[in-house]
Simulated assay, not measured.
Amino acid sequence: MSAIFKKGDVITNNYFTGTAYLEMLVPEGTEFNCPIGNVTFEPGARNNWHAHDGGQILLVTSGEGYYQEEGKPAQKLHVGDVVTIPANLKHWHGAAKDSEFVHLAITTNPQNGGTNWLEPVSEEHYNAL
């Protein structure tokens, strides 16, 4: 799979299942007020349910993955898809079981706060997709 941006470092917090990588392209706290991270998920990797105080935009650049809002069916994501996530909406995103998945994660309205991490997406829930 060809990469547009550097893969970055392995994410070592407890908010992901499987292996994922992060390369910040525009760091937080800069004059641009628009943090952008390149996130790479290995097949089957995903983040926990979470919500962003200021919202988020995802731009899919490689592979196939999923995005799901609480109470709605998961959406399959492909290269070129754009997901706009309103502030405080509980959701998760990650790779399909058989595909690496890469997206740019754009933090919107960072002055409103950060990310509120919640419970992991269960194996049972994920495997039912």
Rank of each mutant, 00 (worst) to 15 (best):
H50K: 11
G37L: 01
E28H: 12
H103V: 05
W117S: 13
H91T: 00
A45E: 00
W49C: 03
H50Y: 03
S62V: 04
K72S: 14
Y67I: 15
G54N: 04
Y66I: 15
V83N: 05
H50V: 13
E119P: 01
H103N: 14
P86H: 05
G18W: 07
W49D: 03
L58S: 05
Q56G: 12
T108V: 13
P27M: 08
Q56W: 05
Y66K: 09
N38T: 15
H93T: 03
S2E: 15
E124G: 09
K72P: 02
G54P: 00
F41P: 01
T108Y: 01
T30P: 04
Q68R: 10
N112C: 13
I106R: 08
G113D: 02
H125K: 09
N38K: 14
P120C: 10
H52P: 02
E119C: 02
D81T: 11
H93W: 04
A128T: 01
L59N: 15
I36L: 13
H103M: 08
E70L: 04
A51W: 00
I11P: 04
V82R: 06
N33W: 03
G80H: 07
G54M: 03
P27H: 12
N13D: 12
H78V: 11
G71M: 06
V10W: 03
M1P: 03
G29C: 01
K90R: 12
S62G: 10
R46Q: 12
V83P: 02
S122D: 05
A20G: 13
M1A: 15
N13S: 13
T30Y: 00
V26G: 05
T107S: 15
V83S: 13
E69C: 06
D98C: 10
N13W: 02
Y126Q: 03
T17V: 09
E124N: 07
G65V: 03
F5Q: 08
E123K: 13
N88D: 12
F101E: 02
